[in-house]
Design a protein around this nucleic acid. Sequence first.
DNA 1: ACCTGAACACCGTTCAAGT
DNA 2: ACCTGAACACCGTTCAAGT
Lengths: 238, 238
Amino acid sequence: MSRQVMVTKPQRTERRADALSKERIVKAAIDILDAGGEGALTFRALAARLQTGSGAIYWHVADKNELLAATTRAIVMGVMTSAAADAGPREAIRAIAVGVFDAFDAHAWVGAQLFREPGHPAMIEIFEGIGGRLGALGVPVHAQIDCWSALVNYIIGVAGQNAANARARSGNDDRTAVLARVAATWSRLDPATYPFLRQAAAQLAGHDDRDQFLAGIDLILDGIASLQTVAPSSAPHA
Amino acid sequence: MSRQVMVTKPQRTERRADALSKERIVKAAIDILDAGGEGALTFRALAARLQTGSGAIYWHVADKNELLAATTRAIVMGVMTSAAADAGPREAIRAIAVGVFDAFDAHAWVGAQLFREPGHPAMIEIFEGIGGRLGALGVPVHAQIDCWSALVNYIIGVAGQNAANARARSGNDDRTAVLARVAATWSRLDPATYPFLRQAAAQLAGHDDRDQFLAGIDLILDGIASLQTVAPSSAPHA
DNA sequence: ACCTGAACACCGTTCAAGT
DNA sequence: ACCTGAACACCGTTCAAGT
């Protein structure tokens, strides 16, 4: 009664060259995110780009959360592979910081995503990359967590905010236009109640985001250095 | 031909006690955001809570962006009014930082919102509150912007990330459960490739978010102090 | 002037049906 | 095993119609 006659060949499971896979989906999603921002990534747009049905994506990816987590992971993983490895600890930390900054700048949506899911597993490489250098910097064990926390939080926080700025300057705004507008607003403030922002407005336009970011890193590293001379290194470490 | 006879009274424009207003809408939106997070704030839910039609809200608020901007503004404005005014500059900066931290912690959605719109006008008070104290701290004018940038970015970045953590620990997770889960993951890492995170895992659970945040502030302030001794204060200031 | 609520275009997700 | 695409429940926003 069974009609198994139709099975002439042993069903070549050989995939078509354009077969769907999580990797291809993530790649397409990153392209869409880079081009159009978070708002542009929909399952319909993704399916159209992959020339499939919107439901097919769910066979490879549980839901949109997992999709975003995977895209974020892909970007973050790329940061550490491009960071220099054999410089001194201070230079290594600066290199990792700049790597995060540039990755966030190139993919403005990553910062917001990491913000949403703070302990993102993909961050482990970066976390270790920073923390593992503190010993070589001469920071005593008992003080390492606070130093690490300050550095890591600063890096993610600032790189993310810069990326948000980058998002705001899409369209016809060039890189300095947004800053110029903020500066213009500040220069119109009452000088009696806002003396600092008034004088900062003039300097704001000429400053480079990346330089300012690195200046902050140096400030924290200086704080760490000064802490070593102050803190007793004879403290008991667990 | 015109039928104006119906106008017997001069149309008392006196509002009902529960008349709609932007203020009432924002208040209700904050309640919804606090209770259910960003996902819970819909125009339908808002309309239901205000006992009106969803379209009525659009008479007072342009769209959801303006609504979120207004709610964020309301929370941020409250930070500075509660920050101590007459302590020394270092204490004042710490007080503002803690004010932001606590406000973000109480309203976990504010951080994400500020992240989305970086130069948010409501932040001006906080920006000036920090920047205006740097002179009294003894920071030379030419170095103030970098110090200000480091402090402000750190405060917003870290307070925001902590708030994201707070969001993750909703439901049956208590405050330490999330941290414990991260610590457990880290303690399972390969000790050869992740020595720092392995040893950090043990200490992580016992640490208080707020203390760690303040330790970072102190680290930056120490960096600022050490910078003063190094940088020439005879530099020409614009 | 202000409010109502149905209607529109869109979204994430599901699922019976195909191969 | 993997894909299709209509269907469902939702969303922000609009707008003719009411008061």
